[in-house]
Design a protein around this nucleic acid. Sequence first.
RNA 1: CGGGGAGUGGCGCAGUCUGGUAGCGCACCCGGCUGGGGGCCGGGCGGUCGCAGGUUCAAAUCCUGUCUCCCCGACCA
Length: 561
Amino acid sequence: MTRLSQYFLPTEKEAPADAEALSHRMMVRAGLIRQVGSGLWSWLPAGWRVHQRISTIVREEMDAIGGQEMLMPVIQPAELWKRSGRYPIEELFKLEDRRGAELVLAMTSEEVVTTHVAQVVRSYRDLPLILYHIQVKARDEPRPRAGVLRTREFMMKDSYSFDRDPEGLQRSYERHIEAYDRIFERTGLRWYRVAGDVGMMGGTGAHEYMAPCAAGENEVALAPGYAANVEVASAQAQAVALPAALEAPAEVHTPGATTIAAVAGQLGLPAGALLKAFPVEVEGRGLVMVVLRGDHRVNELKLGAALRAPWRAASAEEISERIGPPGFIGPVGAELAVLLDDGVAEGGYVVGANRPDMHLQGVQPGRDFRYERVDVRSVEAGDLVGGQPITIEPAIEVANIFQLGTRYSAVTGASYLDEQGAEQPIWMGCYGIGMARIAAAAVEQFADEHGISWPAAIAPFQVHLVALGKPESAERTLADTVYATLCDGGVEVLYDDREAGAGEKFADAELLGAPLRLTVGRKALESGEIEVQLRRGREAQAGVAPADVLARVAELCRVAP
RNA sequence: CGGGGAGUGGCGCAGUCUGGUAGCGCACCCGGCUGGGGGCCGGGCGGUCGCAGGUUCAAAUCCUGUCUCCCCGACCA
């Protein structure tokens, strides 16, 4: 029962001046959210309805795979986080109580949930187990941005799976994939699941759920049958026309040419005919030289994964001392290990000669320098996967799933006794979904110049009922009747019973974006039919007699996007 | 953390350079008209100009400090 004349829905004609992202502008204008501070947002009644509908879908699908909902605190003892090694994370909010005891605001709940499981689970008979909660998360983001897309406080569903062994973890992980696929199918979003970075979580597998949209902070590489975050994507490089290798490398004078562009320009060659040397200092291994095609870029995440150790770019001093003059270094004759990127094909390349103002031409990898193959470059649009060119598009990360392994169970002593009575570590997975990002992604994907256009499954209201005509008029009386019918029929309906002009009411209806708009006015009185319009595409539908309105709405809700 | 920008009624802005009665549009309140795409007329309410200090006869305006917010980048377990 929601009458707009009484409803706290502060719509605005103009968006805040400093709002850039579409979802930020639209959600504020539509009266769904209001800012409290940087990265801190209130959800107003209509916005919270959207949020709740998303939570409900998530909850239903988590329950469907046997997840058990619980609730863990936002404020947690720092001790737990020190034990897990996550206390130094800069994004972790740290605070003290009045006695000076150290506390944190949880960004996720691995520490707490693992503690409970460690205390309770004793036997292999207690596993597997999936626990989850829908709770506030706090993260001291260096830069909150774009409305509710990146905030310092937000609601997240986080679930945790506990299994006896890696095979069990794999099964729990796959169950989550099923649940998440269904969740995103139900939300009506455009989405895809991509291979993700396992990062410092150090697990054995990770996927991210991505919703493509302009405001997205991630980039996803796509090809038929392939989708991966560019952070981890691999693809076959596009071919580049190369001069043949010379019988032996030949020196060429390249005065002042310290960049790929400068060398390519002086020699009249494409950048891809050069090799780029990127010396890095690797912990426990010392200086190594990463070599890529001149037109390729190093992907630092992939490099970190390939090196399997912390690393940093070598300093200019280290380069001068150990290799040669910066800007003119290359793998030939360098006395250090060379890691050659997969993007470098057979051919004769130009490389730095390790002497000032000199390069070498006709260099052939393998013949002229020894190397170890790695895949450390960033993929680019047009690279091939399975013979098909990839495209790269921005996307919002709306969920992620990780196979954690035994990292947290080891530090909290979460173990069980197997059939032989031997103590075994519990294998864990963790799985997150952000409700706010799903809402924002839906706005980003479907809004048009008139406003939001919600997928029916997460719309704040199914029906936006607009009453036109003077108060107390016959059309108002009819609208009241229609409203009562819809409410009695269990339809989620927002009734615009305000004393306002038609234009204002239609504009607000399109801004708020309910999938279905019903209009009761003079035309309805004359024709005996209530007008029906779908928000998506603003398509007028056949009218409906007041007596049939429930059936018609039910029918349209089934076909509405 | 680096770079850029902004704080003036609820929202969007002008005024600041060149110190001198704080303004405009929208919204809001009252009255009337209109009643199918943000309509019209008339009358109103509402602002210590982010905060603190300084200069001055006088500060939204000049100076110093400080807080907050936004955008780009870095970062993003």
